Amino acid sequence: MLSRARTILIGGLGAAAAVLGAAAPGLAAGTDNGTTLPTAVETFEYPGAAKILKERGIRLDSGDGHILLTDCKAGADISVYTKQRDEINQGRICFKVTGNGKKGYLSLDIPDVMAISAGKYGVWASVGGPTGMVNVPANDVKAVGEASWGTPATLLALQI
């Protein structure tokens, strides 16, 4: 025969299990109200890329957050000169380097690039054309595309 305290304890545990068991499936699956739980997977997509593409025609794909599009008036660590003239910077597209400048990566697509300028950080540029990779030392400018080899070039990536 079970003691009275033991019976109350077992009954209380059974009731608690029934309540938790009814609530747990919705919480575990994240579909209690038709929504799913967010994931914590970093995609490295450039924030606001769709808006930048629509407004400026610059496709910024992904990066590590150490090379960011900036207003040229605010100063630039990397400048890209193109034949395309937008209303903002008249053919100059500027980037700021964040962190210590020892690393950075940005995948992008900028057509008709004519030159790339590096400030205090040297940069490697992946350019569609005969050379592929272009090394731009710190405080230097390198001609690319029509300005260098006579055919248009597309800037595909910047890397520090």
Rank of each mutant, 00 (worst) to 15 (best):
D109F: 11
A147R: 13
S126E: 13
L156G: 08
Q84V: 11
I88Q: 11
I78C: 02
R85T: 09
V144P: 05
G75W: 14
G132F: 02
G104H: 08
A115P: 01
F95C: 04
A115Q: 04
W124E: 15
K83G: 15
I93S: 02
A147I: 05
D140T: 15
V134R: 02
T131V: 10
A138L: 09
G122A: 10
V97N: 06
A125R: 09
W124I: 04
S107Y: 09
V127H: 04
P137V: 15
K83D: 13
Y105L: 10
V123T: 11
C72M: 05
S126H: 10
D64V: 06
K73N: 11
L69Y: 11
A115T: 09
C72P: 11
E87D: 15
L156D: 15
P152R: 14
E146M: 10
K73E: 15
G145Y: 11
S126C: 00
V134M: 03
I88R: 14
I110Y: 10
V134F: 08
P111S: 11
A76T: 01
G128T: 12
Y81E: 14
V144F: 06
D109S: 15
P111W: 09
I116F: 06
K96F: 00
D112V: 00
T98L: 03
P137K: 10
G63N: 03
D112R: 12
N100L: 07
V123H: 09
G104L: 06
K73F: 02
P137D: 15
G132Q: 09
I88F: 04
Y105H: 08
F95A: 02
A138S: 08
G122L: 00
A157K: 15
T98M: 01
I88H: 07
G145C: 08
V97W: 04
T82E: 03
V136T: 04
Q84Y: 08
G99P: 13
Y105Q: 05
N89E: 13
P137S: 14
V97C: 01
M133Y: 14
Y121K: 10
C72E: 07
K96Q: 14
V134D: 13
G119S: 12
S126M: 12
V123M: 12
P152G: 13
G91E: 00
K142Q: 15
C72N: 11
S62K: 13
G122N: 07
P130D: 14
K96T: 15
D109T: 10
D71F: 03
K120T: 13
